[in-house]
């Protein structure tokens, strides 16, 4: 984390509120959004146990182009903790599903964005993340809980990921194009 030169308190306060200065600032803000969106996600009724919108992943999706890798992974962990705290599953094996799914998605999205940078938008990155996360969770469900029968939950679960991933990606793409905060955050690093 780069250290900034001392400045008058008033100016420093203004900077903190308005300008994303460092990866830590951005991680903190996006991490807080993860907590908030996890709460929103938790309020939305789910037709099936695994099916969720994945809106808590939006900050991670936005962070792909904003944060260096270590901070980006830290944000993914913050999201896992936030989601688990809010859903009350932090100290149960359910949190491991969240951890595995989120980390897989985060790494897949990062890799996709870095490797095929110019030819993929947030829509593709988001779909990739959602489907990768769901596929890993089905694999774990198959290995740990449901055995063979996990295959039966795969189609609706993967299809949900495809659709919600695309919608979330479209939102992120639009947000990134229009947000002045996002533009400043990109410029700041």
């Amino acid at each position: 984390m780069p250290t900034s030169t001392p400045r008058p308190t008033e100016a420093a306060a203004r900077d903190l509120s308005a300008e994303p200065r460092t990866p830590a600032d951005i991680t903190a803000l996006l991490g807080a959004f993860c907590f908030f969106l996890s709460a929103v996600e938790y309020m939305i009724p789910k037709p099936l146990p695994f099916m969720r919108l994945g809106i808590a992943n939006l900050p991670i999706l936005l962070a792909v182009d904003l944060l260096p890798l270590p901070w980006y992974l830290a944000l993914a962990l913050v999201k896992v903790v936030g989601m688990s705290v809010i859903s009350g599953s932090l100290f149960s094996y359910v949190a491991l599903f969240s951890l595995a799914g989120t980390l897989t998605a985060a790494i897949a999205m990062w890799a996709a964005r870095k490797v095929i940078r110019g030819s993929v938008s947030a829509v593709g990155v988001s779909m990739l993340g959602a489907v990768a996360s769901n596929a890993v969770q089905i694999a774990i469900a198959s290995a740990v809980v449901f055995g063979e029968a996990a295959r039966l939950i795969a189609p609706p679960f993967l299809a949900t990921g495809l659709v919600t991933g695309a919608l979330l990606g479209a939102f992120a793409e639009t947000f990134a194009a229009k947000s002045r905060w996002y533009a400043r955050a990109r410029g700041a690093l």
């Binding site: 996709a112 095929i116 110019g118 030819s119 993929v120 938008s121 829509v123 593709g124 990155v125 779909m127 990739l128 489907v131 993967l158 990921g161 495809l162 991933g165 695309a166 990606g169 479209a170 793409e173 639009t174 194009a177």
Partner: peptide, 16 residues
């Protein structure tokens, strides 16, 4: 919003 080549590739792979 512009859809790019790999968006479609990823969508098709996921649908597959």
């Amino acid at each position: 919003m512009r859809i790019k080549a790999f968006d479609i590739v990823i969508a098709l792979a996921a649908a597959g």
